[in-house]
Amino acid sequence: MILFTSFDIHEVYISSLQMEWKQQSGEIQLTLQLFTDDLETVLQSRTDSRIQLDPDHQSVDSLLVLYLNEVLALSYFNNPIPISYLGKKYQDDLSRIFISVPLPEAVEKVDMEYQLFLKQFPSQQNVVHFKNGSYLKSYLFDGQNRRYSILLSDQ
């Protein structure tokens, strides 16, 4: 059997987000990898015009930026940190979304609220891998766990 849970073809709801803190360049680099058909379903549910996610069709960047800002919120000491969408790439049935988060000063931790696709797919699992040099830590965001404090180093 092929298990499927969305209107297309893959068998699990999962995404992965690589977060790498580049202290020298003063930013956290986010690379979000997700199933294109999930993103299509979610963006489609937010508009009446037909969404088709491939390079040949119309840009969905404005919709996507709105959506990302809704499901991903970063802050430190209750100060929201704006996220900056750089662009995306399609490969086979996956999309990669590149986001830059400016973090000019060294802080101990960043609070993260992250609800990608949770509203649409209750079994969605979003894995976050944080990296700072050799320090690595993974977090699992899902319906039960929508918030974490991301420690930026192991000190």
């Binding site: 790498e20 680099q29 690379t31 750089l86 662009g87 790439k89 990669r96 590149f98 830059s100």
Partner: peptide, 11 residues
Amino acid sequence: ESEFDRFKSEI
């Protein structure tokens, strides 16, 4: 170069 940096220089 990480995939992120590659993308950044591409755009």
